[in-house]
Write a protein that binds this DNA or RNA. Structure first.
Lengths: 200, 200
DNA sequence: GTCTATACATCGATAGAC
DNA sequence: GTCTATCGATGTATAGAC
């Protein structure tokens, strides 16, 4: 057994524990809110003592950062795997539906990714790069429809984020606002087609 | 000097101190975030000891509740004092502009009123009644334009809240999203006029 | 009402033994 | 890596002097 193999197995075990901790952190966030995560509760869920968590995350912010990255990776995987069927408008509609679905499916994730609610938390450059990739993915699809102005993208994110935000703030667990995603997208498309240049 | 006069003056002084505490709490919220308010810091700002705050607020949640009420009173005062000039559409536009202006003018206030970010905090029925009055004020103006569907109001709050939310989350202190309030309202009005019944 | 003083529980974080 | 023990800060609350 070479040293490399021992190192690999240790690294794999380390990574596995890290993911067990992250899973437990998400569960806690869904139950008690993002800011309600306590490191003692979290450690108890994975049968560790609270200081032992520091072998996996340098700080609570570091844990949040890992959750931030994980959340965007999940969203990216869903959006990037969307089949490119229909015209550009239908592709935007499919993206918008996936976005609102994923947000209501895990509101703690949406809160972490799309609101600035944790005092002092800023994602690391590495994690923020994932957020930028997600935004680029939206921009690509809007560009394909001829919506190339900066304002087109900003208005899109505002409308979709607005539906999700109202849903989370005023009726968590319901669907009163996110059910409007198709009407909201109709509204957005009608307006932006008029504003924009030539059709695609 | 009657007993009533003494009582009045004591009550007035009590109220004045209460407002000094609230002012300091808002200042702290703007500097360190809503959840970053510490009762010891707060007491120091108004030259009191921490236990003395309990002469004015029964708990920290009670303080948040007073801030919640104060915030909605400020918004209500601005919206209700809007002169009713122009057609219903222009009145909606004026309301939307006032809303976004007030939100970016004090993002800590907007966060308290329009997001569920404080773990465990729920406004009291009295304070929530102010929030309902604010929503009714919006509904009145939308009704006057013939936008009487529930979805019309929900879409309006989603669009306006979405602009503010994106502004706070992605560019605090800037105006990239709230500058789109007029275009967003054009988009909303065009769409909702088509959807709605007879024009006003 | 306001103060001093104190108590308790919880939190994130660190030191050092093993 | 994991543990025990501990730290300082926090929110909450109370007792008792003035």
């Amino acid at each position: 057994m070479t040293n490399e193999q021992v190192t690999d197995r240790r690294a794999a075990r380390h990574q596995a524990t890290k993911e067990r901790i992250l899973d437990a952190a998400w569960a806690l966030a869904r139950e008690q809110g993002l800011a309600g995560i306590s490191l003692r509760d979290l450690a108890a869920r994975v049968d560790l003592r609270q200081p032992s968590l520091y072998s996996y995350f340098a700080s609570k912010h570091d844990l949040y950062d890992a959750m931030f990255a994980q959340g965007y990776e999940q969203l990216l995987a869903s959006v990037e795997s969307l089949e490119l069927v229909g015209d550009p408008y239908e592709q935007i509609r499919a993206m918008a539906r996936v976005f609102t679905d994923l947000c209501v499916a895990d509101m703690a994730r949406a809160q972490l990714l799309f609101q600035r609610t944790l005092p002092g938390f800023e994602p690391s450059p590495e994690s923020y790069a994932l957020a930028s990739r997600f935004l680029d993915e939206a921009k690509r699809r809007l560009d394909a429809a001829g919506f190339t102005r900066d304002e087109d993208l900003d208005l899109y994110t505002a409308v979709m984020g607005g539906l999700v935000n109202q849903q989370m703030a005023n009726e968590p667990g319901g669907s009163r606002w996110v059910d409007l995603v198709d009407e909201a997208l109709d509204m957005y498309l009608e307006h932006t087609m008029k504003k924009g240049g030539p059709t695609p």
